[in-house]
Design a protein around this nucleic acid. Structure first.
Lengths: 209, 209
DNA sequence: TAGATTGTTAATCGATTAACAATC
DNA sequence: TAGATTGTTAATCGATTAACAATC
């Protein structure tokens, strides 16, 4: 096991490993070799072994990997057991859709609360999550200390809202606003879901084939 | 200008260039050097010039790049002028949110129609787009030949639905199902929006800081 | 034991950065 | 003209793949 800095390339493959192992696990597969997993995922066995070696030794010569064990280990590396707590900022159509469809629990997140400015939404409840007024944000975060904010607000208020939340101690942003956010505060992470970028990539590919 | 194969790394930076140039353009900036654009985007000037050289010569020595021109050129490379046509498969919460919030026109896409199986939705209209029954899919696609399908259906029906659409001639999938799709048909592209993966990446980062 | 498959080191490949002549 | 900045070639860096001894 090397303990050098983990590259972004490796980090971005971890969730994919987790997803595939979860799939194998739920289908009752007990063991898998790097070779088999690689062909299932369309990458080389070498890369899988190289990636995993950044974090430890999870396999066994002549046998391969125990699916349940490896799934658990990668889950641990990703922090799915840490019980991160999350608030949703903006309960419009997208926030609503995430609340309704997305299985936060399956990846170890717990939805604490949602916030919006619309009087029509405040006080209502979606899937057991109460929508609160943005005015309560300061008090709420101070009291319950959530870790992550899901940002689904209009572009114009994205950066000010992020800054406000960072001041309150939020350290992770799942950012759906299509605005690139920034901060001077160290230890704050932005994970952007840029819908536009992926659709443009698709446009590029179908335009030249 | 080199005309070798364009790497994925370059392709994935193109939408980002486009987004930043669009921003500069809308703010009235007329010219920009690779150096300035690089510091705005957090990448090196060298990389920008190297990337652009894959597609042509868009700058001028001693001057830099004309923002409007470069924006248009990259838009052209991405195919935003091609008027791609798109159908939405699954008009649940997520499909609904995309219809309501996402500016397809800004990236050169036109929403043709949406499809669902829910009788409560069929026949209704969202932002001028009619929701049709899935039963009409074959006739509709045969008649209007859309290019791309947005897939927001339950996981269980994702692959069969994709296969059905591929048989009808759909060549691009904007895939929100969290299922990895596949096909034997050449010239079909999948662009996945894996919510789970990005949230897990965020979990990883906040777990070790 | 023999076969299989790991973890790791070395080799290769590709992507990023640096340097600089060309030229606006 | 002099200064600025490109496009491109060369150098460096990092990531992927191959190879193989270790060993279950």
């Amino acid at each position: 096991m090397k303990k050098q800095k983990i590259s972004d390339a490796v980090i971005h493959r971890l969730p994919r490993y987790y997803r595939h192992l979860d799939d194998l696990h739920s289908r009752g597969v007990v063991r898998i070799s790097s070779n088999l997993l690689g062909s299932k995922m369309g990458i080389t066995a070498s890369q899988i072994r190289q990636d995993l070696s950044c974090f430890g030794e999870f396999g066994q010569q002549g046998y391969g990997y125990n699916v349940a064990v490896l799934r658990k280990e990668i889950g641990h590396i990703l922090g799915v057991e840490n019980g991160h707590r999350l608030i949703i900022i903006g309960a419009g159509h997208l926030g609503h859709a995430l609340l309704q469809n997305f299985d936060f629990g399956a990846v170890g997140f717990q939805i604490d609360s949602a916030f919006d400015i619309s009087p029509a939404l405040i006080g209502t409840e979606i899937r057991g999550v109460t929508i609160r007024s943005m005015d309560e944000l300061e008090d709420y975060v101070a009291a319950y200390r959530p870790d992550v904010a899901v940002l689904t607000v209009p572009q114009a208020v994205a950066q000010p809202m992020a800054s406000r939340l960072i001041d309150l101690g939020i350290r992770g942003f799942w950012n759906f606003t299509n605005v690139e956010l920034s901060t001077d505060t160290p230890g704050v992470f932005f994970e952007d879901v840029h819908f536009v970028d992926t659709l443009l990539t698709l446009s590029y590919r179908i335009s030249r084939s």
